[in-house]
Nucleic acid binder design. Structure first.
Lengths: 243, 243
DNA sequence: CGTACAGAGTACGCAATCGTACCGGGGGGG
DNA sequence: CCCCCCCGGTACGATTGCGTACTCTGTACG
């Protein structure tokens, strides 16, 4: 696995990992380890964001929620990034929700500490801004994708994105949960996932999805997957993981 | 019209307008006036962005394009913002296209000059980052909206967003053009626009759309319009325009 | 060992939108 | 002045996905 490449040991947050020693030292008093448990809601819409999260493993979904109870994922954060950039951009709240999708762990920093360090203008600023740009591309592509691409391709793309941010090929996911993320019916996911399984690309059973044929999935996925992946690699360094 | 409010004279870019005099003075040698003509493409996907655009009037659409020729708008920039933030975030290219939707004018700065001034960490940095956050919210909400909201509501929302950034109520827009922005069929826009017209909310004729009943449009629009608008007002100041 | 329940399979009619195509009118250019 | 073409109205079947609802089956728990 390329996950052992120098740039990105597995289970280490890649932004923190790329900080020069002295910057990391400055920040470390304000960093505390945390665990991310499945389904944890880090923030509800309009909640003040008191801490910024740097996952080491697991994934966090950024989700837009609607008055009628509907919801759609707009972005995913794994160990390649950070949740809470809004605080360095100038706002302690966002209208979106952040919830843990795949469990894992990570570090978090208080918003004030991070903002203070950001203002220093060092490497951290640079990394956070580059990540912001990559994240914007991810959201933008999702916006377009949600409109024009049919479910099968979007499901394949979503599984790949999650898989890129997960330690193995086996993902603990239910159709129900995937449906919430993709903004469709649970039954719709069952149908689409069934088709992917028939083609031998994935296998699933009661709350588990296993990726069997990564290349096949990429072929089924809509073109949005490579677009975003390439941008992440270009902006945050390519090492085959979480890109 | 509230467009005469102190913070935001009509036809002045609100980011440049909020700069302290000395910062504006530092930048002014690198600013040049430009006109934005309908249909101009400021940048094609993957083109290096040599200049950052600050519209005074008119609107610029950020559009995602697909291999099959399809396209969807992911965001709009008017005099409340800037096109090209990606260069200060760390990348001279984006995978998206920027095209002029409503003609107007504005200023542009060379990417290097802007990046240099941004690094100074003054008010410009603050303004650009806050705008970035607002823009992220706009894109995110669009991502979700594109998936779950029917065309009528999305069309109403889109017209309101454009109207907020236009000097008057009369917009030079064809159904064809709107269809490209919303990522639907031209015929679909004709049908939806017909319904809005039947309800007396808008009137249109050969390339012109006039907003007759703003409040009615807001009532028909999906909930995404107020969500984004409030964020823009909160982050960039409220003056009733371009928010 | 039994039961309760979450997760998944499936089916039905329906609504929205698609892709396409053809038509008519208005207005600008030759 | 006329013609052409851009713009908009409309129609058609096809498709995708929705809402709902009923069923079945692992599996966790008592």
């Amino acid at each position: 696995m390329s996950s052992l490449s120098a740039n990105s040991p597995p289970s280490v947050n890649r932004i923190l990992n790329q900080l020069p020693p002295e910057e990391y030292k400055r920040m470390s008093p304000f960093l505390e380890p945390i665990t991310l448990a499945r389904g944890d809601v880090l923030y509800y819409p309009q909640d003040p964001v008191s801490h910024v999260y740097f996952p080491n493993s697991g994934t966090v979904s950024v989700v837009a929620t609607f008055a009628d109870g509907g919801s759609v994922e707009v972005g995913v954060v794994g160990n390649e990034g950070v949740f809470g950039i809004n605080v360095v951009l100038g706002s302690v709240t966002t209208p979106h929700e952040a919830m843990v999708q795949l469990p894992g762990d990570g570090m978090r920093a208080s918003s004030e500490a991070l903002r203070r360090e950001f203002k220093q203008g060092g490497q951290l600023q640079d990394l956070l801004l580059r990540y912001t740009q990559a994240f914007i591309v991810q959201i933008s592509q999702t916006a377009a994708c949600n409109k024009v691409h049919p479910l099968d391709g979007r499901l394949a793309r979503w599984l790949l994105m999650i898989c890129d941010r997960a330690p193995g090929q086996d993902l603990e996911l239910t159709h129900e949960f995937i449906a919430v993320m993709l903004g469709t019916r649970r039954a719709g996911v069952t149908e689409a996932a069934g088709r992917l399984q028939d083609e031998g690309l994935i296998r699933y059973r009661r709350g588990h999805v296993t990726v069997l044929d990564r290349q096949g999935l990429e072929a089924t996925s809509c073109e949005c997957y490579p677009v975003v992946k390439k941008e992440f690699e270009r902006l945050l360094g390519s090492d085959g993981r979480a890109a």
